[in-house]
Amino acid sequence: MTIPLPLVADTGARASRPAGWFERVVSTTSGRVGAGLLVVVLFLVIVGPVLHEHDPAEVAFGRSLESPSREHLLGTDQYGRDQVARLLDGGRRSLIAGGLVLGGVVTISLVAGLAAGLGGRLLDAAITRTIDVVLAIPSLVIALAIVGALGPGFWTLVVALVVAQWASMARLARSLVLAAVRRPDVLCARLAGIPSWRIALTHVLPGTIAQLLAVATLELGSVIVAIAGLSFLGLGVQPPQAEWGSMLSGARGVFTIAPWLLAGPTAALLMIVTAANLLGDSLRDALDPSTSTISRGTP
C-alpha cells in the first residue's frame, strides 16, 4: 500500500525540456541507485527467462517443496515448480500488465487533459467534475468493484487498475496543459489563428507527454504492488499463471515448513518499489527547485 505523493505541477516551459531534469535525476545518488535497480530488474525479467532452463509451469510432485539448491536456486513450491523460473515469468507478466496499465492511464489522461485545457470552459468543468468524483472513491475500492463486476483475470486486472488510477494523472495532465496554454509561444500561435487541435499537437502535446511518461514510470512501483495485491487475493492473475503476489499467496499455507518461498517474490517487489521511490524522490527534487539542495545556499 503505497500512497503516491502528488507531484507539483510544473510550468510548461520546463516541461518542454525533459533532458534537463533527466540529467538532474541521474546526477543524484538516489536517482542513480533507483535507475540502476530498475535496469537490473528489467534486464533480469526480459533476459532471464531465455537463459534459465526451467519451465515455470513444469509440475513435478516428486520434487515438491525442495529447499534452495544448485538445481533450484530458490527451491520449489508444492507442485515442484522451479521458483526462479516462476519469479522471472511472473515478473514479465507483472511488467507487461504494469506497462499496459500505465499506457492506458497516460492515454486517457492526455485526452482528458487536452480536452479540458483546450476544449472550452464547459468541457473543462465536466471533466474536472468527473475527476473529482472518481477521486472521491478510494482507488483500491474502484479496482475491487470492477473485478467484482467483470470477474477476475488478467485483462480485468488491467482495466480495473486503469479505471482506478487515471483520475489523479488526468488532474496532473490538465494542469500541465493549462500551464502550457499560457506559454508565450502558444499565445502567439493562437493569435495567428492556428486551429486549436493543431496547437495541441505541435505545442502542447510533446512536453506534456514527456512529463506524464516520467511520472508514469515512477508509478510503476505502486501499480505492480496493486497487481500483486489483487493477485494475492486471487482477484488478479489466475493460477497456474505465475505472478509475484499469487506466488506469495500460494506460499501462505506452507510457509511454516518452506519459508524460502517468501524470499524471491518479496525481494523482487522490494527492489522494484524501492527503485521507483528513489527515482521519484530525485525527480521531485529536479522538478521543484525550492526543495533542491542546490538552490538552498547559505545567505
Partner: peptide
C-alpha cells in the same frame, strides 16, 4: 522509512506471521 514504504502490506503481514507468530 524508505524500506517501509517499499514493502507491500501483504508482504509485511506474511513476514509478521512468519517471525512473530511462528
Amino acid at each position: 522509512a524508505l524500506l517501509g514504504s517499499a514493502v507491500p502490506s501483504f508482504v509485511t503481514s506474511l513476514l509478521l506471521l512468519q517471525v512473530v507468530v511462528v
